[in-house]
């Protein structure tokens, strides 16, 4: 897992300033009407064609993922039945699809996978569903813990800041992929009885837990820095002088100024976790074969690409499209929220 790219250090710190600057623009016909920063960002985002298209692609993926069981039901197949094994006319004697293009046909829109003969279309739908679910959950948790820990460390300062800072340093220096590979099987052996199958939910929960455990550090570090800069500003001083509680200062004074970096980090983190999760599955940790997953599909396909490139194409292309779209979306969101960092 690599560290998510940090947003430009020039990220906007004060929405208030920006707001006044924007409303003072001479080109604005209704200068007197005040507009919220969110609304301004939305206007800017709508003007960004790339961003809008990416947003639609991303939404499409989420809809497909959430609606996977429904789509599979209408389509009439499931990702677990080995159709090719049950019907000898689908796979040849070497276990490869008989029909050209990986066995694509009216019955199997994306073909069937070699050897087991499962339906690639539904397998891919469920793979998207599982991958997105894990990545979204991880991103939400990472953002939550990053925000809480980062703001706490930054606002309290002193010893707390020192301890948290060192923990973050260690986590960032940790060889995470190696740790996953080494630690994951051990953890599962401890948690699961020797004659019980490893439940998929346990693998999912552990994946999310482990990725969160390592993932919060970059966000926390970033926010700590932002808070350090903010807490010496006049409006915070003013709040303190008027006797505001630390909670009020954090939630009402600091947090509104931090939404921009948080949002940007989160949009960049989600595609990262999709690839991390797929990468782990590819390496044999995390989800494994009978469970549909992007990484599992790519891993399988990598063995057959010489004879059945179609099978590699679908998971590969969909994943690339999703990750690119989400990254472009992340860029657009940043541009919209932070016009000063313009290109």
């Amino acid at each position: 897992m690599t560290t998510p790219a940090s947003p430009s250090p020039a990220a906007a710190l004060e929405v208030t300033e920006e707001d006044s600057a924007a409303s003072a623009k001479p080109g604005n016909p209704k200068g007197t009407e005040s507009r919220s920063p969110g609304r301004l960002a939305w206007t800017r985002f709508k003007r960004d064609r790339t961003g809008v298209i990416s947003a639609f692609v991303v939404i499409f993926f989420f809809v497909v993922g959430i609606g996977a069981p429904l789509i599979a039901k209408i389509y009439g197949k499931d990702p677990y039945t080995t159709y090719g094994q049950n019907d000898p006319s689908l796979l040849n004697d070497f276990g490869f699809p008989v029909a050209p293009n990986g066995g694509m046909s009216g019955d199997f829109w994306f073909g069937i996978d070699p050897q087991l003969g499962r339906d690639v279309f539904t397998f891919l739908l469920y793979a998207i569903r599982n991958s997105l679910m894990i990545a979204t959950a991880t991103t939400v948790l990472v953002a939550f813990f990053g925000v809480v820990i980062g703001i706490t460390a930054g606002y309290l300062g002193g010893k707390t800041d020192y301890v948290v800072g060192r923990i973050i340093d260690i986590l960032l220096a940790f060889p995470q992929t190696l740790f996953f590979i080494g630690f994951f099987p051990v953890m599962l052996t401890i948690l699961v009885a020797p004659d019980e199958a490893t439940p998929t939910w346990l693998i999912v929960v552990s994946l999310i837990t482990v990725m969160t455990a390592f993932g919060w550090a970059p966000i926390a570090r970033l926010l700590r820095g932002e808070v350090l800069a903010l807490r010496e500003r006049e409006f915070v001083e003013a709040a303190k002088v008027t006797g505001a509680s630390p909670a009020r200062i954090i939630f009402k004074e600091l947090l509104p100024n931090l939404w921009t970096p948080i949002l940007i980090q989160a949009t960049l983190a989600l595609p990262l976790y999709v690839t991390v999760e797929a990468g782990l599955a590819f390496l044999g940790v995390g989800l494994s074969d009978p469970t549909p997953d992007w990484g599992v599909m790519v891993q399988n396909a990598s063995k057959y690409y010489q004879d059945d490139i179609t099978y590699m194409l679908f998971p590969g292309v969909t994943m690339v499209i999703f990750v690119i779209a989400f990254n472009l979306l992340g860029d657009s969101v940043r541009d919209a929220l932070d016009p000063k960092a313009g290109r």
């Binding site: 796979l91 040849n92 004697d93 070497f94 276990g95």
Partner: peptide, 11 residues
């Protein structure tokens, strides 16, 4: 039969 097909069929 299914097992052997995964191994590579008759071959």
């Amino acid at each position: 039969e299914q097992i052997r097909r995964i191994y590579g069929g008759q071959a």
